[in-house]
Design a protein around this nucleic acid. Structure first.
Lengths: 246, 246
DNA sequence: CATCCACAATAACCCATGTTAAGGCAGCTT
DNA sequence: AAGCTGCCTTAACATGGGTTATTGTGGATG
C-alpha cells in the first residue's frame, strides 16, 4: 500500500524522491487501528500530533446539547485530520472512525521540521489544508442553498472525485461505507428523507448503490443534477486537466 | 487607527515590538478603498497577494447557476481574506464588499518572508487561518442542525464576539451593517423568514436592532437561545479566560 | 416639499422536509 | 432454525420555512 498522502499531494505538484521519502517516513512513527464509532480525537482534548488517514473512513462531527449531530466533514485515505491543530488549546470538535480505520500519528516536530526545511513539501501540505477549507465552504453552500436531491448528488460527486484522486475508484464505482443515518447527519436531512432521495436518484438511473458499493454510470448526468463544479477540489495543476469522466 | 490584524493576533499570543512592526508594514504596500457590492476578488481569478480588511465589512459568496446565492463567510476588520490562496490556480469563490471598505494588499513575498524568518508571526497567522476554518465548520453545524431562531442568534453572538476581539464593540452594542437579505443569504433562509425571526428575538428582548446598530442587552440569554459556545473562536490563550459578558 | 427608492414589515397560502410508526430483510448468534 | 439486531423501506400526517404580493417608512434627491 502506497502512502495515500503522497498520492494525493501529487495532484498538486510533482514531488522529488527525497520529498516522497520524507513523507513516507510519516508512517513509521506509530500507526493506530480503530474500529467504527471509536474516536480518533475528541472535542476538548489538546492535540499533540497530526493524524493521517491511511485506510478506512472517518468524520469530523459535533453534537449539540440535545443530541442533534452534524457531520462536518468526511475523511478518506490521504486526508490529514488535524494539521496544525496543535497550535490550538483544544479541539472544538471530535473526529471519529466510521469504518475500521488505520491512521498514522505524525508527531508535531516532524511537521514543523518539514515546514522549516522543505518548502516544497510545506507548500503541498498548505495546498491540502486549502482544499479542505474549500470543501468546507462548498458544504456551506450545499446546506444553505441546495435542496435534498442536489445536496445528495453533490456529495456523491465530491466523494467519488476525492476517492479517485487517491486511486480508490474502480471504473465508475467506489466504496461508500456510509449508513443512511450518517449521510443524513452530513446533509442536514432526516434519515427518512435521505432514503426517499436515494430512491429518486436510483429511479432516475443516476446512481446504483448496493451494499457499500456506489456506481455512478454517468458522472456528467449526476453532476448536472447537482450543479457540481469540481473547481473547488483544486485537483488540476498547471498543464494538467481533469476530465471528470475519465 | 491601529492595525486590526495586530489587535486580533494578540488574542492568540503576545507579540514583540519587532513582530508588530513587521505586521504594521503590511499596511504600507497598497491600500484599496471599495464601495458596497464591489468585488475584492472574483471567482476564477488567480490571487497574487493577500487582502487584509482594515475597516468595513466584506463577505465570501458564491452564486449557483440559477441565481441562488450563499454567503459563505463574513469578513470584518482584522480578517485576512485569502491567506495562502496564491498557491491555488484560481479562486473558487468571490469576495465582495458589503460596506465602504478599506483593505491592504499584502504581496505574496511579504507573507512568505514572514513565514520563513519569523516563526512566531507565522504561528499567529496559522492560528488566524485555523480559527477561520473553525468558524466555517460552525456555520456547517448551524446550517445543518439549527432552526432559524438558533441560527440567527448564533450568528449574532459570533459576530459580536469577533468584533469585540478587535475592539469594535461599545458596551453591549456593535455595528451590524447588514441588510436582511444578506443575513438571509448567509443563514440559508428567506428574507421574509429572517424578518419574522428578528421580530421574535426583539419580542423576547434578546436583541435590539435599530438602523445599523445591534444591542445585545444580555449576551448569556442570547447564547443560551443559540446554544452558543465560544470555544470555536479560540480567543482565550493560556492563563487568560474570556468572560462572555465582560 | 414632493417624489423616489431601497429596505423593512406583514399577510395568505403552499410545499419540502420532518416526525412517528410500522414493516421488511439480511446476517449473526445460540 | 428460531430469534435477534441493525439497517433499509414505506406510509400517513405535521410543520417550519418558502413564495408571492402588498403596504409601510425613512432617508436621499431634484
Amino acid at each position: 500500500m502506497v502512502n495515500p498522502l503522497i498520492r494525493k499531494l501529487e495532484n498538486f505538484t510533482r514531488l522529488s524522491g527525497q520529498d516522497k521519502h520524507l513523507l513516507s517516513e510519516f508512517l513509521h512513527e506509530g500507526i493506530r487501528h480503530l474500529g467504527p464509532r471509536e474516536d480518533i480525537i475528541r472535542e476538548g482534548e489538546r492535540p499533540q500530533s497530526v493524524n493521517l488517514v491511511l485506510s478506512g473512513w472517518a468524520c469530523r462531527y459535533k453534537y449539540l446539547e440535545d443530541g442533534r449531530r452534524q457531520i462536518i466533514a468526511f475523511l478518506v485515505p490521504g486526508d490529514l485530520c488535524d494539521n496544525n491543530f496543535f497550535l490550538l488549546r483544544q479541539m472544538d470538535h471530535s473526529i471519529g472512525a466510521l469504518t475500521p480505520i488505520s491512521i498514522a500519528q505524525i508527531p508535531r516536530h516532524r511537521i514543523e521540521e518539514v515546514s522549516l526545511h522543505h518548502p516544497r513539501v510545506a507548500q503541498a501540505l498548505s495546498w491540502e489544508a486549502l482544499t479542505s477549507m474549500a470543501i468546507q465552504r462548498e458544504w456551506t453552500v450545499s446546506l444553505g442553498q441546495r435542496d435534498a436531491q442536489e445536496r445528495l448528488a453533490h456529495l456523491l460527486c465530491e466523494l467519488y472525485l476525492r476517492l479517485r484522486a487517491v486511486g480508490l475508484t474502480d471504473g465508475t464505482s467506489c466504496e461508500l461505507p456510509l449508513r443512511q443515518a450518517e449521510l443524513a447527519d452530513a446533509l442536514g436531512l432526516s434519515t427518512v428523507h435521505v432514503n426517499r432521495t436515494l430512491q429518486e436518484l436510483r429511479a432516475s438511473q443516476l446512481i446504483m448503490l448496493k451494499g457499500k458499493t456506489l456506481t455512478i454510470p454517468d458522472l456528467n448526468a449526476l453532476r448536472s443534477v447537482a450543479q457540481f463544479t469540481p473547481t473547488y477540489l483544486h485537483l488540476e495543476h498547471e498543464g494538467r486537466h481533469l476530465d471528470a469522466n475519465e
